[in-house]
């Protein structure tokens, strides 16, 4: 039996007096690859932030690795939503990835050779080898996104939280990105927030459909069958139709 890594029990979150999440309960297990889908403003990012310990629910219980999220930050890799920072910030690719190693452990210490090695390794995983000394603002949007994914995985987290990871990737890159997720999934649980159900449904094992409340949580097949009628998920989500499975899943 696999371990329960994230356990949300009856989570309620409020912004400015309005409920963003209502009574959300969710379990994520080891090596899960789960997609959280839903409309804009449906609370997807908020749910991810609750798991990352960035947003405190006013009601309910959050446990990550049987602990409070803020106590297990070293085990959680996080990719915030794109475009939240200044793209012209004077920083090199390597330094961006290195910030993924920061935390309480590294206070008052400097980056060691092992840290740099780990960063280069992470860049290799996202196929960005050779870019380490480039300034960030010389990269394209898709390349930056891959660098940020490297930053999220550089500390080898056991839980990876990705907020709209494919939003700035072209369709070709999206497929290789999901291939990467399948590879990462062997070592960690992965949660992907997305409003595009298209490609994602052929890669993930489970889906959670969120619109303030959690309308569905379980295997992909069930989600697709019942999304619109029963669980009130928005029409445009499934308007693309159920995608063809382009590549067979890697089951090793």
């Amino acid at each position: 039996m696999t371990d329960e890594i994230v356990s949300l029990r009856n989570i309620w979150v409020k912004y400015d007096g309005y409920n963003v999440l209502e009574d959300v309960s969710l379990s994520i297990f080891e090596n899960d690859l789960i997609a959280i889908i839903g409309v804009n403003g449906g609370g997807k990012s908020t749910l991810l932030k609750v798991i990352a310990g960035l947003v405190k629910p006013f009601k309910g219980e959050v446990k990550v690795f049987n602990n409070k999220p803020e106590n297990v930050r070293d085990l959680i890799g996080y990719l915030p939503q794109y475009s939240l920072f200044d793209l012209n910030f004077p920083i090199t690719v390597l330094n961006v990835v290195l910030t993924g190693l920061l935390g309480r452990r590294l206070l008052l210490k400097s980056y060691s050779r092992e840290h740099v090695q780990a960063a280069l390794e992470a860049l290799k995983t996202v196929k960005m080898t050779g870019f380490e000394n480039r300034p960030l603002n010389s990269l394209s949007g898709g390349q930056i996104q891959r660098v940020l994914i490297a930053r999220a995985i550089v500390k080898k987290p056991r839980l990876l939280l990705l907020d709209e990871p494919t939003s700035s990737l072209d369709p070709d890159m999206q497929n290789s990105f999901y291939e990467l997720l399948l590879q990462l999934k062997k070592d960690m649980s992965v949660v992907v927030v997305s409003h595009d159900i298209g490609v994602i449904s052929s890669y993930v094992d489970k889906m959670a459909c969120l619109n303030k409340r959690l309308y569905y949580h379980g295997p992909v097949e069930g989600a697709l069958k019942t999304l619109q009628e029963v669980y009130q998920c928005p029409v445009e989500l499934i308007a693309h139709g159920i995608p063809h499975r382009v590549l067979e899943r890697h089951e090793k």
């Binding site: 070293d74 920072f85 920083i91 910030t99």
Partner: peptide, 22 residues
């Protein structure tokens, strides 16, 4: 003492928080 952390916070405060930087 804290230049790494200041650099990281300036770049992406939310990510720094999620990483456990004070």
């Amino acid at each position: 003492l804290f230049h790494k952390e200041f650099y990281a916070i300036s770049f992406d405060e939310e990510f720094a928080t999620a990483s456990g930087v004070p």
